[in-house]
Each structure stands twice: as structure tokens, then as C-alpha cells.
Design a protein around this nucleic acid. Sequence first.
DNA 1: GATGAATGAGTGTTCATTCAT
DNA 2: TATGAATGAACACTCATTCAT
Lengths: 200, 200, 200, 200
Amino acid sequence: MEEISNTQQQILNVGKKEFLEHGFKGASLRQIVKQAGFTLGAFYGYYQSKEELFDALVKETADYIIVFIQEIYDEVKMYPSKERAGHMMDCFARRLPEIVDYLLEHSEELRLLLMKAEGTRYETFFETMAAISEKNVGENILWISRQNMTFRLLIHAYYRLLIQVVLGGGDRESVLKAMMDIQSFFYYGFQYFMKEENEQ
Amino acid sequence: MEEISNTQQQILNVGKKEFLEHGFKGASLRQIVKQAGFTLGAFYGYYQSKEELFDALVKETADYIIVFIQEIYDEVKMYPSKERAGHMMDCFARRLPEIVDYLLEHSEELRLLLMKAEGTRYETFFETMAAISEKNVGENILWISRQNMTFRLLIHAYYRLLIQVVLGGGDRESVLKAMMDIQSFFYYGFQYFMKEENEQ
Amino acid sequence: MEEISNTQQQILNVGKKEFLEHGFKGASLRQIVKQAGFTLGAFYGYYQSKEELFDALVKETADYIIVFIQEIYDEVKMYPSKERAGHMMDCFARRLPEIVDYLLEHSEELRLLLMKAEGTRYETFFETMAAISEKNVGENILWISRQNMTFRLLIHAYYRLLIQVVLGGGDRESVLKAMMDIQSFFYYGFQYFMKEENEQ
Amino acid sequence: MEEISNTQQQILNVGKKEFLEHGFKGASLRQIVKQAGFTLGAFYGYYQSKEELFDALVKETADYIIVFIQEIYDEVKMYPSKERAGHMMDCFARRLPEIVDYLLEHSEELRLLLMKAEGTRYETFFETMAAISEKNVGENILWISRQNMTFRLLIHAYYRLLIQVVLGGGDRESVLKAMMDIQSFFYYGFQYFMKEENEQ
DNA sequence: GATGAATGAGTGTTCATTCAT
DNA sequence: TATGAATGAACACTCATTCAT
């Protein structure tokens, strides 16, 4: 456990607020330390750069999400190769409440990560998330060929919807309800896809 | 017909490139005019501000899109009230090739508009697009209640997919194919929704 | 008679307006030619610089005023040396209506000259006016010694009041009335001075 | 007591000099910091803007003057209503040495305030001073009707003379002597006015 | 006589970062 | 740990003026 001094906690709090308000590039270190009641010099005692502060705010959440997605695909892989496609949505659905809870608790970090990270190494975080899916689907769910751009895009869309619902600001119940609906929507949609592919 | 001098065309070209690379805020007028081989003074002979240059690059495409979406809903309105929901996807599908062709030809402007416009009056362009849909759906396709957040999100997702496909960089054929697939996917998905709503 | 083309007249009109509004330094040639419906190039066909335009607007009035003041002192000089001081105010009073009429007709030029000329060779015009008085008084109205700062300042004040009354915006009658009052005020005031000086 | 570092003092000194030389608008921050031996960044560590520097140079003097004038009128108000007019000049005369001393010590600030403040919130400081007089005279010294433009102008002239004497650069004695003379001059002048008004 | 394109130096202001103390 | 002073480069924008056509 790293010790976090009051000063550092202040900087983190105000930093989060300012990054949320103005984005990484738009936020001013001067403003942050001023509001936190410290000086620029103090800041550089804790972080080596503006980006390092952003990182500190966001890293844990980013890592969690990446691991979480990978875990889902690991579960999918436990089915026999041919059944994987059919179970993919199940696996996602099963762990939906868990990830929703986590994201609701870290919604500010999520927003930073996905909407305020331009100029940091997270500016392509969404694509990174999607790339994990593409990799796993391509390697393991064979009949969905990796070239199938449409499928990739629908995965993107699914993630984006999940995020939007969480960031939309509703309570846990309505967020879960919306995601269940979307899940069903996607389930029906995918039926069409699997039929199509089988016919070809 | 406005005449556009070589200089101005240079500024437009380099400006487009720089805005695409760094976003509106991140782009530097100094860099733009330097690369265009002119001075800052020359720039201000053509445009009154940085934003005006962005506007000149993007306005036509923005206007075209807004008008286009409204036109689709005007077509939907020509059906009797009860049939509108069923025909909505048809209407979108019918005009899909047209908008795809237009957007492919203006894909750079589209990218500026939707991903590089922070700091300009277009920074909420995507929301503006979606708001037109919400307004029309809410007023005219009655059984889809305006409060239905999920439905709103799916409209967002549809537009976002359309844009991503276009910006994905494929050729006309593969873009159209992908959009047709997505169309079908959404069609099937909506079946579920309509069933659900009717049962309630 | 110099011919003045429409273009030139336009520039003069708009130039006067802009100089009045923003002062010499604050006025922008760009704005002037834009409002006049011409280009910067055209401007430099008529005037060699911004200051030359100011000069053109103001020179005649400036010259007239200088000559006028000198004329008054020339009249004073026609009295025997000892009587001059006593007649000074008379001479001023006698020609008051004439100068008031002229200044009312050229009040805009007067304002340019005295309040908007910073940055031009007229920025010390008021001091120039006063210096003529000082010179004449010092040379010719002997008992008022040149060192008498107070007397100099009262001359300044007299001129300043004259100008303020004219620029105050009243009609001819009220301007003349005010100046007559001021004249009397100064007349009484000077009585005190002459008494004092004689006693010393 | 605010501590003022050497740097800040340097900026204040050079700033005062530059503002005196070129006026507020005409002075260049770059020139100021260059002469002070610092950089622009350093400047903005002390002042938030060019105007704030001007303010720092001038505020104390401005406030002092405003309060001082008001105090004189407060003294006038201690006389019965009918006697006020007759005592006004007395009250001014009584406190003349005090204000002269103050202004002589702050003559540079006075010059900034009254001749170099265009573009700052002090650009109408002279009018503000005069307005206090007008207000007090109008409310309390009844027989001098507020509409009497001439009277207003004479108040202006009195202040302007006071300032000119101070800024004229003489020593304390000659300044005081000049102001006493002017005081007497105005006293005699006002006799005429009061007579006139009474006769009407 | 007038245009329109262009210059080059200037403006006030903000930035992330450094460093001696 | 924290300060506070300072840097130097960057920002968008405006200016009076020039000159080939």
C-alpha cells in the first residue's frame, strides 16, 4: 500500500475535477495546484509530469477493464470450439452486473479514460479494449472471420453503449435494465448474423 | 461561385491536414501558414479567425448531413401514423447508398466534424444529429416513447456505426455491405423491442 | 483649390469618424478603408501615412486658431505699453463671437486636435496655443512677468474653458452666454491680480 | 504589510516609467520586463494583467483623492444651508496645503491617473472627481443650480489648475503660492457670479 | 486610380517545467 | 516537503505599410 498524504489526495481530487472539466490538454496545472492550495513546486514533488497525474487517476480502472474483458473471453474459451459463438453473449450477460457495479463506482475515471484522455497514452483506450475482443474472437471463435469488419464494429458498438449507459447518470437499476435490453437487442441481431453465415 | 486563390487553397489543404492531425485546439495557425508557405498576416486576409477556417472546411458537409437526416424523417411522415415505426428502417435503408457515397467523398470533413471539432461550434455535432432523430421519433412514431433511453442510445449507436464504417477506410462496396448488414442487425433487434413494447 | 475625389472625401469622412471614436493611435486604417468601401492600397494613393490623413483633417483648423490668437495679441499691441494689460480681456471679448462661430463649425476638428491627437505632431497643440500667449504676454505686457506661472496657468484655463464650452454640445446662444460669463469671471479675477501686483 | 520583492519593485519602477512615457495602451509589457531584467512569465507571477500593474501603481493615490474631496464637502455641510456657498472656497483653501503636499509626493501617480490612463478603468478619473463636486454642490449649495453649466465648468477648471500646478514641477512653495493666487482669483470671480444670481 | 495579396514585427497572455532554497 | 521565483516557447490575433498588377 502506498501512503498517500493529504497533499497528494488534494491534488488527485482537484486534478480529477479539472481533467473532467477541461480534458487533459485543456486542464492547467496552475489551476489545479492553486485550487488544491499548493504550489507548482509541490506538485512536482509527487508527479514528474502532468501526464503522470492523469495516469495515477486512471491506471487502476484501465487495468481492471482490460483484465475483465480478457477474463470473459477466457470463459468463452472453456466451451468447445464450435459452441463458442453461441455462448459469447451469455458470457457477457453473466458478468454484466459485476462490471456495471465496478464502472458505476469508477464512472469518473471511466469518463477520463474515454472522453478526456486526448494527449495522453490513453487516448486510444477504447480501441485497445476493442482490439482485445478482436484478437480473441479472431483466434477462437473461428467462423467469425477476422476480416469481418461488421462484426468488429458491432463489438465496438456494444462497448460504446455499455459506457454511455454507465456515464448517462442513471441509478444502478435503470443502468442494468438498459444494458439487459441492449443485450437482448444484440442477441436477436446476432441470430440474423449466424443464420446468414451458416447459409453461405 | 466564389473564386478560391492558390494561397487560399493551400491554407485549406494544410489546415485540413493539421486539424486532422492535432484537432482544432491542438492545431497551430503558425504551423499551418508556415507549411503553406505564407505568413500569419496573409492568413488573416482570408479568414477572420482560426475557427472560421475550420468552419470553411466543414460547414458544407455539416449542413448536408443535417438536411439529409431531416429528409428521411420527412419521408417517414408520409406514412400513416401507425405504420411509421415499421417503415423507419426501410426509409433509412433506401437512402443508404446515397449518404454513403456522399460521406465517402467527404470523409475527411466528416472526421473533422465528429472527432476533431472540440473548441468549435461543431463540438456537439453528433448530439445535434441524434437530437433531430429524437425529436422526429418522439413527435411522430408514437409507440416509441420519448423517455425510452435505450431507444435513444440505439439511435446513437446506429449513427456512430455509420460513421465508423465510413471512416474505417474501406472501399465503397465493403462500406455498403457493412452498412446493409448493420441495417439488418438493427432490424432484427428492433423486432424484439416492438414485441416487448406491445406486450406491456 | 485642390480637387478632392469622391474616394478621398469618403476616406476623410470615415477617417474623421474613426479618429474621433478611437483616437489617432487607436484607429485602424483597415477599419477606415473598409467602411469607406475602398482598400488599403487606395488609401496610400492619397496619403503617405496614417498621420498624413490626420493632418489633412486637422491642419486648416489648427492653423486658423494659431493665426487667430496671434491676431488678438497684435491688436493688444496697438495700445500703449502700459494700457495693454487692462485691454487684454477686452480684445479677447471683442473677438469672442467670431472664434466661437468658427469653432462651432469645426468642432469635430477641434476635438481631434485637442483630445484625439496623441501620437501625432499635434499632441501638444494645446501647449502650442498657450505658448503663443505666454510669448506675447511676456514680451509686451511687461508688468506681468514671464515667471508668473499663475498667470500662465490662468491663460491655459481660459483656453481650456473656451474649448470645453464649444465641445460641450450646446447651441450657439448658450455657448456664447457661457463664454461671456466666463469672461466676466476672469475679468473680476484679474482685477485682484492687478491690484496685488501694483501693491508689490 | 505586503512584502514587495526586488523583482516586483523593479517591475513597478520600470512600469511607472514606461506608462508615463507611452501611456497605458502605448506601453509594452515586453519592454517593461526587458528593462527590468526579467521575462514575461515572471511578470505574470506578480500581476494578472497589464491593467493590474497600472492599478497597483495608481490605486492608492486615486482613492486618497476621492476621499479627500468628499471630506471637504462634508466640512461644507456643517455650515447652515444658506452659508454654505460663501464658505466653500474657505474650506477648499483651508485644506489646500495638505492636498498639495500629498500630490507633490505622488505627482507621478497623479500624472498616470490623469494623463496616461486611457484604456484603464481610470480613463474618466477627472470626470469622476468633478462629478463628486457636482453632486455635492447640487445637493447642498442650493442657489447654485445644478443646471448651471458654467459653474460646472469652473469647478472643472479649478481642479485642472490644481493638477497642472502640481504637475508643473515647481517646488512646494511656488506651488502653494500659485494655488493661493488661483484661490483668490476664483474667490473674486465667484463674487461676480453670486451677485448676478442674486439679481435675477 | 485602385486592387488584393503579402509582410514582419508587434500585442497581451498562458503554458509545463525547473530549481535554488 | 514544499515554496516561490523564473524561464522560454508558444498561443491567436492586429498593425501600418508595400508593391506588382
